[in-house]
């Protein structure tokens, strides 16, 4: 794991926001990954010296503003997810690839469950099963991040 420049971090965040703002069609929105969440969680675990809970929270706030939902909803869930991610952050090097996938799925799932809970409290209705689909596309995006910016687990040779 090479240290990452702060500018790289900011740039990926901007790219994530742009993708978040992309006008998704009806079918696209069902499978759209949570770009900012995946990118921020990746940096939180990979480069904790740049990205902390505050940054992830801020990204959540950006999502709130761009979706026009209640201000603070996504920010809250992002912050909680970031905290859950930080619990095992130092032990990640011991994980193998599949354990890491499982862990990440848990994180993304937790975020979706939390936002669902908040929306239900606010009087929303229960969505159908396709609500869980973005977790899969999140995982694909996660793999892309790993390919572009490096593994989180320890290389096998050491």
């Amino acid at each position: 794991m090479k240290p990452v420049k702060f500018s790289t971090f900011l740039f990926t965040m901007l790219v994530g926001l742009t993708f978040q703002l992309y006008p998704w069609s009806n079918t696209g929105i069902i499978i759209r990954p949570d770009f900012l969440l995946v990118i921020m969680i990746y940096w939180l675990l990979q480069a904790p010296y740049h990205c902390n809970i505050g940054w992830v929270w801020f990204a959540g706030l950006l999502v709130d503003l761009s979706t026009g939902s209640l201000l603070g909803q996504h920010a809250l869930t992002f912050a909680v997810t970031a905290f859950l991610g930080l619990i095992y952050q130092r032990r990640l090097v011991l994980f193998n690839r599949w354990q890491l996938y499982l862990y990440v799925i848990f994180l993304f799932g937790a975020q979706r469950a939390l936002i669902l809970l908040l929306k239900l409290f606010a009087g929303g209705e229960l969505p159908d099963w396709t609500y869980g689909l973005p977790v899969i596309s999140d995982l694909i995006l996660w793999q892309c991040m790993i390919i572009w910016f490096g593994e989180l687990t320890r290389p096998k040779k050491l």
């Binding site: 929105i29 026009g68 939902s69």
Partner: peptide, 9 residues
């Protein structure tokens, strides 16, 4: 422009 970014609304 787009159909909303929030699948809930």
């Amino acid at each position: 422009l787009h159909m909303g970014r929030d699948p809930f609304s």
